[in-house]
Design a protein around this nucleic acid. Sequence first.
DNA 1: CTGAAAGCGCTAACAT
DNA 2: ATGTTAGCGCTTTCAG
Lengths: 323, 323
Amino acid sequence: MKDVAREAQVALGTVSKVINNIPVGDKNRLKVEEAISKLGYEVNTYARGLKAQKTYTVTLIVPDVVNPFFALLANYVELELFERGYKMILCDSHAQSEKELFYINMSSQNKVDGIIALTYSDISKHISVDLPIVTIDRHLNSSIPCVSSDNIKGGFMATEKLIECGCKFPAYIRTGSIYTSETNNRKIGYLEACKKHGIQPLLLELVDGDDTISCFEYFLEKTKLSDGSLGFDGIFTVNDSLCFLLLRYILSKGYKIPEDIQLIGFDGMRHFGNQDYYVSTIEQPVELIAKSCVEILLSDHNEDVPNPYILPVTYRFGGTTKL
Amino acid sequence: MKDVAREAQVALGTVSKVINNIPVGDKNRLKVEEAISKLGYEVNTYARGLKAQKTYTVTLIVPDVVNPFFALLANYVELELFERGYKMILCDSHAQSEKELFYINMSSQNKVDGIIALTYSDISKHISVDLPIVTIDRHLNSSIPCVSSDNIKGGFMATEKLIECGCKFPAYIRTGSIYTSETNNRKIGYLEACKKHGIQPLLLELVDGDDTISCFEYFLEKTKLSDGSLGFDGIFTVNDSLCFLLLRYILSKGYKIPEDIQLIGFDGMRHFGNQDYYVSTIEQPVELIAKSCVEILLSDHNEDVPNPYILPVTYRFGGTTKL
DNA sequence: CTGAAAGCGCTAACAT
DNA sequence: ATGTTAGCGCTTTCAG
């Protein structure tokens, strides 16, 4: 920058103004621009960040980018940030709370402008007040904005769809983190739908670490009716990944889908991100989630946005239901 | 930091030394450490980066994180960088060369310590000499290190596996970018295997933008033998995504897989990243690729590493072949 | 071993 | 409109 100033025969401040689009005399502006391109000058973002306390960088923390849902989320968050001139530091916590905390710490040291976090552990006590944060699917307390799909409605819709498709005994199966998050509301939606239709709920609730297939096998046997027929004719699973796992197992056991058992997942995942839906599913508006997170994070006055900020979901047919 | 120095009653330089593990008297070290935790002090990475010209940040550029292969790559690159105390800025170019260039530019301004790039367009003329870069699957010139799977061998293995599984007429089908990259070597491997076994090659080469299914449909008809039977009994596709697309189409047409047609893809993708393989495939050592990229990028003397740096691939059975 | 001070590249307030 | 300058938080040289 000093070199540019010398080359253009102007003062340092003038160069700075040209760079930052602050009114400068046309003649000088031209001289500076020439000098910049001649010298191949580029601003040093770190020096600027040091002074301006603004880095145009946002941290996104996800549990696992390999999971297509989180990959899709990262994709949209990146797009949205890019449009606003922000960069994204992607942090994969691999579902370890130590790594989550490490990354929150790092973000703070790196003076990022904000954090979008989809975490499992409770990070609320580790975040400083001056670092904006938005969580996804994790409503920690009223001071931290949380963006989430309408999980209750989604669970309700899924269950009613099964019933609409002729299921008499829809079951709910979940697995995942032991920590409570907004996704637990999917079960609430299921229970509400059961209640409305006078159906006895049938639940299988597993957690990470359980042998899902073995547990399901046992569940399948245990719930069988006295005449040996299946105890359920539909399953709503907490996500598409689990749904697909069960789909393959059920088919391998010789049952027909959707004839014998109908399946509905949650998330709206597609093969390779853009091909067919894996299963019939309740699709989350991932793009809208990403957009909302970025908007809330980067805006200054969030007093009027509801917390949690709930976004609508959509049913998608994916072949594992009759409709 | 000033506050810490005051609190601990020592000079600024001493605090700095404690932070950076430079020998300091035990008494002072203790005082400083106490002051740090009391004040909740954190180093400002930007100020440090400004001074030290080192930011412990690396940029990863991929064409599309939603694609499971790139998501897997991002996952492993992140892991590897994390272990070395580096952060990853994830850039999704969405396969647009302008965005690729924008991100390379940004990386340079942000004074990252290096770039790992999987790009389509030729970026070689836009990178400055003082910013280390490693490419994946894209051998631009001998001065830029390139890491890649053994695509020739992989193509060869895939084709021989089809032959071993009884195929008399294995075809090769590709789609993707019009730019040449290391992945084009998969075709070379196919051709070599055909030659070795005295088989007449049968190619369908498409590019992004083509209607893959329509083209394949036409190809299927056009290659049929005079007696109406299929012109090929095996397909090696350039990647798993295409393979899976064709799999579903072929099944929908009433053909049996692997009885009528056997399929082998390339990449080694699994459903949801950790479930079954999508198709029989040549698996790329993604973890090793990531590790190699990071190692080469962050090491100072790369004179002796071969360029391109070729990594071995493995055949995986995924149900679309007989063996 | 410790303290003082220069300066990394930039912005912004101030002076001209 | 332009030039000058202090200082952002840190590292590092140099004296003591």
